[in-house]
Amino acid sequence: MLSRIADSLYWISRYLERAQETARILDVNYYMVLEHSQAAQRLRWQPLIDIAGDPEDFHRVHPEANSQTVFEYLAFREENPNSIAACIARARENARTIRERISREMWEDINSLYHTIHRFKPSEEIAAGPHRFCNLVKFATHRFRGVADGTLPHDEGWQFLRIGSGLERAEMTARIVDVQYRDLVEAPREFRSYDNHQWLAVLKSVGAYEAYRRTYLSRVEPERVAELLILHADHPRSVRFNIQETQAGLRAISGTMPGSYANEAERLTGRLLESLRYHRIEEIFERGFHQYLEETQQTCRAIGAEIARTYFYYAVTP
């Protein structure tokens, strides 16, 4: 497989995953905030920009973070490279450069998604609220995964799709939990009563609310939410699960046996996974929750860089 093709598959997967995560947090936050006071609203929109955008860039465009400006910026703004529309456009552009290597159905699916997204009129959607748009993005990106699973041979190319979404989800979940937690700790006392709601929203935004209810049978407590989203072995949106996926993909490509590693990406993945497997959530809180999540995100970025160095970019000497 050409390095350039592996590179594109990996990024198609990352961009679509990013679009989906952004759609999820927008949708959930919007409806949570509807029940809150004006003052709380202002407080509740800024974290989304911290999670899915670039705060400096955002404030160059919009003076204030509110439901409309954040929706506009995260969903439609072309100049924001992480907006949903931009992610889908880039995923589709990557697919276009390798369309002969993906299935016809994958291509038609992502291409029609691109055209659908670009037919939306931002002003109308902003007026209507984000649900219609975000829901479409959520299901469309799920569907693409299904189309890929069902039509692409599960060879190295498919493994790069798997690694891309594993890594993107792991990093994004870590960031969502990190930002929301920090936000709660720093929030003025009078807003503390919303804590419970905010953690509910975190669960809903990563699609883990029902799983939480079934697992813990208790009221929503920050430690338990963190445990589910970071350390759970089987929940498809937990950091641990997605690092497991990343490791499985990397090993399938290099043929490495468990217990060893073939390259730096595999070593870092293995180290992170061990930490996620054998830490208790209480230990993580004792050592510093924010720091742990910060390090986890850094490791995810380092894994991404090492994958690129190992498989995508060539030292030119043959």
């Binding site: 050409l2 390095s3 350039r4 043959p318």
Partner: peptide
């Protein structure tokens, strides 16, 4: 994606 070394053409794969 291609490179020539000693008169032979290669492509860069993973």
């Amino acid at each position: 994606d291609l490179i020539v070394d000693a008169g032979i053409v290669y492509m860069k794969t993973i």
